[in-house]
């Protein structure tokens, strides 16, 4: 799966979980400060990424990811 496809699907998941307009989602957007994710939504986001891409991520490292671009890179690492 190429990065463009990963990015598209990551943005779809973010919009669904955080219930926001996909237009607000930019590569540098911070989940907490820019997109308004609280701690519970942060976990739900990670869970939704796992489901979307059928992967199991390292919990500690996944929780350290803060931006949309970071999430795309992190997930890409699991899909190599």
């Amino acid at each position: 799966m190429d990065k463009a496809e990963i990015k598209k699907r990551v943005e779809k998941v973010i919009a669904q979980v955080l219930k926001i307009d996909p237009k607000e989602i930019t590569p540098n957007a911070n989940f907490a400060f820019d997109l308004g994710a609280d701690s519970m939504q942060s976990i739900e986001l990670i869970a939704a990424f796992e489901e979307e891409f059928n992967i199991q991520m390292d919990e500690q490292k996944a929780r350290e990811v803060q931006t949309v671009e970071g999430a795309v890179d992190f997930i890409a690492g699991y899909l190599k």
């Binding site: 519970m40 976990i43 739900e44 869970a47 796992e50 199991q56 991520m57 919990e59 996944a62």
Partner: peptide
């Protein structure tokens, strides 16, 4: 199980 795996239960609790 990780916290992600139980996130739906966590949501129900909250």
């Amino acid at each position: 199980l990780t916290v992600m795996k139980v996130s739906k239960i966590f949501r129900w609790v909250m």
